[in-house]
């Protein structure tokens, strides 16, 4: 299994070990570009499906679950199958998916629900996001590995 723990920065792989200074500029640039795309998609989703005041933030929940499923597929493919250009992983994994999903809105939305006297909705949202995110990343990675093994057999 060649997949790393941290999909963004893996200092244990010499090729991935970031050099200093100038070599980091193209990586930071594609991360920024990917982040802009991911954040725009997340903002677009929040405009398309606005969350009712005091309600469970389904849109953020969906965005985070989808982002976790996609990173599960992406990391298996890029680690086991596809020898991609060195900027593909920073662009898509770190930039697009990192920008699409969000932890800060998740935490502050829980705070707002609890503060507004909706502690039960806040707790349900807390647990449901965690559960769906972990199930999404795990099942997506598992299914992708199965397909990869089956195709290589």
């Amino acid at each position: 299994m060649g997949e790393p723990t941290d999909p963004d920065v893996d200092l244990h792989v010499p090729v991935r070990r970031p050099g200093s200074g100038r070599t980091q500029i193209p990586v930071a640039a594609v991360v920024a570009l990917g982040g802009a795309i991911g954040a725009s998609a997340r903002y677009g989703a929040s405009l398309l499906w606005p969350t009712a005041a005091g309600g469970l933030p389904w849109t953020t929940l969906g965005v985070n679950a989808v982002g976790c499923a996609v990173i599960g597929v992406f990391m298996v493919v890029i680690s086991e199958v596809w020898v991609a250009h060195r900027l593909v992983r920073p662009f898509f994994g770190t930039g697009v998916l990192g920008g699409f999903t969000t932890f800060s809105t998740y935490a502050v939305d829980i705070q707002q629900l609890v503060d507004g006297g909706r502690a039960r909705t806040g707790l349900a949202y807390l647990g449901l996001t965690l559960l769906l995110a972990l199930v999404a990343v795990w099942s997506a990675a598992w299914a992708t590995r199965r397909i990869v093994t089956w195709r290589q057999a």
Partner: peptide, 24 residues
Amino acid sequence: GTGFCGTLTTYSTFSYETMRLAEA
């Protein structure tokens, strides 16, 4: 909020790292 904090933080990397730790 939506731009800076939304992209500074991440759920996809968090859940992927958690899965890899569990697998390791």
